[in-house]
């Protein structure tokens, strides 16, 4: 009888499932190199603190915990509450951007002539730094009750749109033609069937990584946008601290928190991606 290599199959699938968790950085026990890097960083930092250049790691940590639990006396809010406003803006702006980027990306990826038509506009708009839209936004939204809010949404939108749009167009265009033919020979004769049953599902991982980089760029943009005329959010907070003066440690803490949140968001999107597209080799 057939001695099919079933054992091997099970083993390989177990590997895959285990791996999808093991390769998530935050849940991984750090390698010794990582520990060494942290240790070396702390050592250099302490040395600089001894020379009076920066606050010592201990003071820094204390201030961080203070900002996290008690909050900043000037804002009377905790770091996370301040961050929350920025995150909210990010989610609204990026959400809108992704909705438009994915739908238009699929259309332009699928209809090549439409893509060639729109290419001129996209090629010109893509290299514009999102922050350059701030003055345009203030003019556009001057009549609305909260122009700053809409300007921020717009900047995040501009930042998040193109990475996601590009990724979507690219992933739709690079759908394996063999797979499309396979679907055709199995009876998917209509374009609509090919689009819905083949191109869209195969584009999911590409779209997710587009969302990932879009979120990253959007997060960078929101901090910059909040420097200009914002009332709330981590960018406005950093700017206020600068204006008050004498708060280098707090500014560094805020900046590093921005980095940390960006990193966590990235990991969360990867995590969700693994959940949604379990079939893909991430």
């Amino acid at each position: 009888m057939s001695q099919f290599n079933i054992d091997k199959g099970i083993k390989s699938s177990e590997n895959v499932k285990g791996q999808s968790w093991r390769s998530i950085n935050i849940l991984k026990w750090p390698s010794w190199e990582r520990w060494a890097a942290v240790l070396a960083g702390l050592l250099v930092w302490t040395a600089c603190a001894r020379l009076g250049l920066v606050a010592s790691p201990y003071i820094f940590g204390l201030k961080f915990m203070n900002l996290l639990i008690i909050g900043d006396p000037v804002y009377n809010l905790t770091l996370l509450q301040i961050m929350g406003t920025s995150l909210e803006t990010l989610l609204i702006g990026a959400g809108l951007a992704f909705a438009l980027a994915v739908s238009s990306g699929i259309l332009l990826g699928y209809f090549r002539s439409l893509n060639r038509f729109a290419d001129v506009f996209i090629s010109i708009c893509r290299p514009i730094p999102p922050l350059a839209w701030i003055p345009v936004g203030y003019v556009l939204f001057a009549q609305l009750p909260q122009p700053t809010f809409w300007v921020q949404i717009m900047v995040v939108f501009m930042g998040a749109f193109f990475p996601c749009f590009n990724a979507t167009v690219h992933t739709v265009q690079s759908t394996d033609p063999i797979i499309i033919e396979a679907a055709q020979t199995l009876g998917a004769r209509r374009q609509r069937q090919i689009l819905a049953q083949v191109i869209l599902p195969s584009a999911v991982p590409g779209i997710i990584s587009g969302v990932r980089s879009g979120l990253g760029v959007g997060w960078m943009c929101i901090i910059g946008a909040e420097f200009v005329g914002a009332r709330m959010g981590i960018g406005a907070y950093i700017w206020s601290l600068y204006q008050l003066g004498g708060r280098m440690s707090e500014i560094m803490i805020a900046i590093l928190s921005v980095g940390l949140i960006g990193y966590l968001m990235n990991e969360i999107v990867i995590l969700l991606g693994r959940r949604i597209a379990r079939w893909y080799s991430w």
Partner: peptide, 27 residues
């Protein structure tokens, strides 16, 4: 499989600490 559950728990734990910290200040 058991390992995976553990890691999931760890992630939830980290998130819980975060929300707890901000929750404290909310209170």
């Amino acid at each position: 499989m058991r390992l995976r559950g553990k890691r999931q728990f760890l992630l939830i734990f980290i998130l819980m600490i975060f929300s707890l910290l901000s929750g404290c200040s909310d209170q």
